[in-house]
């Protein structure tokens, strides 16, 4: 019986694995694209003692009903909604602008009721009792220095550029300027985002400049001739005071038009996730209420932030496990 169960279990794993990775590789298969999502069934092992431990806020937070860390990407988008929810429910919410790594670290220490990520869930993020809720996906644009004469690039060319196979813009029909890839290889433990461009950091050219922060990346892209990088248009706009950059369409598909991403024609994107805890000593009804509130309101704000909300993703055939986006459309 156990063998049968084990076989079934293994079979399900294989089917899931096949479904996830076959779909993600389908549209842009060239062997260089990394996984878009991780396996939702693969929960990180944690000691029993840890699992029994309730959420305990950091002493600096004080007494609040909810403590949330929100990734920089999501913060401008979510903060007003969270404040509005707190006002409507008359509760006190501690909200901090953060990073995926910090959210992950604090969730490991069970110091947060909710975390927010700008990337798909990584293996190390899937902690026992932690549930992920996708708020939407957003195109990642290829950003270049404003002097770069090109307006469009193929995905293959972009990969060659970041691998260092193409080192001058003139090879792509532009000016005879050396290409300088500048971006951030952040969230290395998570699938998706830059991994949709090149699956492994080892594939990126040694001349690639890894920049720690988004503002610095925008500043460097705008000030370095021949520079190319990647970020969302929202981020480029948010840090436009650091410098102006322009974006390239990929094979004619613009990151401004979310319909291309929805139909999986546009290849690179971020996934916005928030988390809640499930289980004894961990569940917070306010957190669950907030998730529902955000899911409801994100539909209205989606166009403003060029985010594709879950409802549209589901309609277009993107795969969900509960509230979590786990696969691209077939």
């Amino acid at each position: 019986m156990r063998k049968i169960q084990a076989m079934l279990s293994n079979g399900l794993w294989i089917v899931s694995f096949f479904m996830i990775f076959s779909s993600s590789a389908g549209a842009h298969e060239d062997g260089l694209r990394g996984p878009a999502f991780s396996d939702p069934k693969k929960i990180h092992e944690m000691p029993t003692e840890w699992q029994k431990r309730p959420v305990q806020h950091d002493s600096s937070v004080g007494k609040v009903d909810l403590s949330i860390d929100i990734n920089q990407q999501l913060y401008p988008f979510l903060e007003p909604l969270v404040q509005q929810y707190a006002h409507e429910k008359n509760i006190k919410i501690n909200i901090r602008e953060s990073t995926c790594g910090r959210s992950a670290g604090k969730l490991f220490r069970k110091e947060l009721d909710m975390g927010a990520f700008c990337c798909p869930t990584g293996d190390t993020d899937r902690l026992p009792g932690l549930r992920f809720h996708t708020l939407g996906i957003i195109p990642i644009a290829l950003l270049v220095h404003p002097d770069v004469a090109l307006n469009d690039i193929s995905l293959a060319q972009a990969r060659d550029v970041f691998q260092g196979n193409i080192s001058r813009w003139s090879e792509l029909g532009g000016k005879n300027i050396r290409i300088k890839p500048i971006a951030s290889l952040h969230c290395k433990k998570r699938p998706g985002h830059w991994r949709l461009l090149l699956k492994d950091e080892e594939l990126f050219t040694s001349k690639f400049m890894d920049v720690g922060g988004m503002p610095d990346q925008i500043a460097l892209l705008s000030s370095t001739r021949g520079a190319i990088g990647y970020e969302t248009l929202n981020t480029a706009n948010r840090f436009k005071h650091k410098g102006i950059v322009k974006f390239l369409t990929i094979e004619g598909f613009s990151p401004e038009d979310t319909s291309f991403l929805l139909s999986a024609k546009y290849p690179i994107y971020r996934v916005y996730n928030i988390t809640t805890w499930e289980g004894e000593n961990l569940r917070n009804p306010y957190a669950e209420g907030l998730v529902n509130y955000l899911l409801q309101h994100v539909e209205n704000l989606a166009d403003k932030y060029t985010v594709i909300p879950p409802s549209k993703l589901k309609q277009a055939g993107w795969k969900f496990d509960g509230n979590e986006l786990i696969g691209e459309p077939m």
Binding site: Q72, R96, E97, S98, T99, G101, R102, A104, G105, K106, R109, S184, H186, C187, K188, K189, G212, G213, M214, P215
Partner: peptide, 10 residues
Amino acid sequence: FFEWGSSEMN
């Protein structure tokens, strides 16, 4: 704001 890949503090 200093973005770090992984950290417990910011």
